[in-house]
Amino acid sequence: MPIFRPDEIKIAALLCTVLMTALGPRIASAALGEPEITVQSDVAQLGASIKSSEVRAGYRVHEIQLPSGTLLREFVAPAGNVFAVAWNGPAPPNLRQALGKYFDALVSAPKPKFVDHRHLQIQQGDLVVQGSGHVRAGFSGRAYLASAIPSGVNLGDLH
């Protein structure tokens, strides 16, 4: 059962987004490693909508419904940075946007030797990207920054 946050952070984030869209240069669409505020810019850039925001023990999760039908979840540490994103749905998300500045690390990462077209597991420095799936059924996966995972958070919960 998601616990919806009745608090100010979301409102503040919305206000900030509005202000920065109006006044400032466009925020990079990055989410991973970026402040929570970029969750909102992700939503705008991706033509998506926030489906829910939930507080869990030690972190927050924003669930974003993408136009493709895929759900993208962004995990936010208490300090306010996005430390992981995860997805599940008919199409992979745009990783260039979801990974932001870390997308280049993904592109340049050495490819695993025994790769097929159904799985992806890449570790490049602090960045871990994992995914799997096939046509008709859909795709799921996640990307996280290993050193940014708040203490006490179970990797198994990041999906």
Binding site: A91, P92, P93, N94, L95, R96, Q97, F103, L106, V107, A109, K111, V115, D116, H117, L120, I122, V129
Partner: peptide, 16 residues
């Protein structure tokens, strides 16, 4: 290109 690692699997080696 954004829906994956960004790698074009356009060679025999990359495509497998």
């Amino acid at each position: 290109s954004g829906m994956s690692t960004g790698t074009a699997e356009d060679t025999v080696t990359l495509f497998g």
